[in-house]
Design a protein around this nucleic acid. Sequence first.
DNA 1: AATATAGATGCAAGCGCTTTCATAAATTGA
DNA 2: TCAATTTATGAAAGCGCTTGCATCTATATT
Lengths: 335, 335
Amino acid sequence: MKLNHHITIEDIASQAGVSISTVSRVINNTAPVATKTKARVLEIIENLGYKPNLFAQGLASGQSRTIGVLTQLIGSPFYDVMLRGILRGIEGTSYSTLFADGSWDAKKDRIALNMFIQRQVDGLILLDGHVAAEDIVTISKELPMIIIGRNIPGLEEQCIPFDDFDAAYKATKHLVDSGHRRIAHITGLLNHNDAIDRREGYLKALKDSGISPDPDLIIEGDFTEPSGMMATEMLLMQGQIFSAVFAANDQMALGARLALYRRGLRVPEDVSIVGFDDQVPSSYMIPPLTTMQRSPLEIGEKACQALLNLIHNKPFELPEHESKLVIRESVTRRL
Amino acid sequence: MKLNHHITIEDIASQAGVSISTVSRVINNTAPVATKTKARVLEIIENLGYKPNLFAQGLASGQSRTIGVLTQLIGSPFYDVMLRGILRGIEGTSYSTLFADGSWDAKKDRIALNMFIQRQVDGLILLDGHVAAEDIVTISKELPMIIIGRNIPGLEEQCIPFDDFDAAYKATKHLVDSGHRRIAHITGLLNHNDAIDRREGYLKALKDSGISPDPDLIIEGDFTEPSGMMATEMLLMQGQIFSAVFAANDQMALGARLALYRRGLRVPEDVSIVGFDDQVPSSYMIPPLTTMQRSPLEIGEKACQALLNLIHNKPFELPEHESKLVIRESVTRRL
DNA sequence: AATATAGATGCAAGCGCTTTCATAAATTGA
DNA sequence: TCAATTTATGAAAGCGCTTGCATCTATATT
């Protein structure tokens, strides 16, 4: 392992007996260079282990070979897997990723965005968050970007929205189709659009099935396990009658499951549960959780590739995103 | 949201009627500047929303205001929480983090390290990984770094090793103290030092208690849920007799729990389980898992602060790391 | 054979900052 | 009051690269 940051393009040039322009050209493939010359330069670069100084490159070219990724809460499974997808998408390219965490805080989002701009990232991936749509539009005029999990008016081509409404509809429908009529819903934080969309999907599915939603069966959670547990405890304490729970994510489903266990209620015999996200631990819940599967890894990877193409003005394609129901063992038929 | 990357130090200088040197000095506090002048410059900077170009700064000063973080598998809970700690530690500073994922692959580690060096990070945090100790020592001569999860000879002052041996010892001891004699162990990947240390801790605890370890009760997993499940199924299929399982991490404990469920074995009545890491889903296992708690958030944050101090040649302190047993409901006394 | 064209290379001007060195102004001490 | 400091500032030389322009050679076209 050598740290040759002292070798410069000039060293290469003089050893190869050419000018630094030529060396620069072979590095960047930016103009034709005689085959022989190119080979010689490449060889010397290899031998000396020369690596261009990215600051100098960046300063001269205005490009940073860096993309910024704004996530909302590192340590949150769904997003983390998406990050892994992004890292996978960038692998093998000369780009690197700068990470920042908005923590669902608009102020932090702005700080992060400013940081990215100052560091002159060549592109941006936004994972959800509370950045104002107009700011996104402004920035997108000067900076290639892909927005995951939102749909910004006027920027649809660069957005990968989630199908929260549809997915929640399907999840709820599955319960209805299994014969459940009194289905409780633990929502996510209702200042998050995805939580709202999921609730709407739930409501629509009930209505379409001729069931009039009971507001008492809808409790707001915050996407965490404890909130799922508390929501369920509250339902139980209030003596609400329900045969199924649709949780707006798997974490809350796990919480709900524990609350039921504490009360001696069996899943799915007494209460069925459907989650959302299909996170890894869900398939190891007792019993394994029926949930809506999404494909964050693929989304992250494809989004990253799309961004890279966008940066280079090449045509790009955004991944289709459709959640699908994974039937496991937490739902039973009710006659 | 403005993107003023076009304003340069010269704009500030001319507006303030001073030279760019002076502006540079007030920005960096690198030499005395008359109070009045300083105030004027600062005001203009503020008004114009000027942000120094980091490439130019980096090129001129050789500093990047960036720290590199090499993680092993983004999406893996324990490390992700540590990343959050790091991000928390860097918050409010002028530094940013460059992330790379080694995926427990020495080759990728090297690529990432080269990338970091090329990007001239000012410091490095290594989360575990397979980088050769000698390479680490070489790099550390030129680059401030903190190594988490390993102990590199000659670099002890910059390492935050984990107490895997002790923690595993405690975990196993807890089972022994609860009356268990035939305790199975699902190890992690045995090319990982932490997995080896945990196994050693397990063995030592048994021996110290006068129990001679049964090799048939030790099965290698790979730290994932499915491996924990398969290991347990294998034990069951082989007809091994055991009243407790110590899994080298919580994910495998979850897998083990599902395997037992499938066989109709109750936890903890028939088999007790102890995990390792205290990841969030573990406290929502049915029944909640007894496990070894670690403090990745704190470690990440403190490590980051230590690195920042190290970069600035200030004295620094590494976090103490001690795992502690969290007793929940997956272990029962055996008489 | 004469001219046009494409290919190969070098020169030199930046990119926006930091920092050394020199100089000018202000302060101090005797 | 004058030399010796100290404080404040500017000029200019880089940092290591990219890139437009100019030059020169080799090849193609008629």
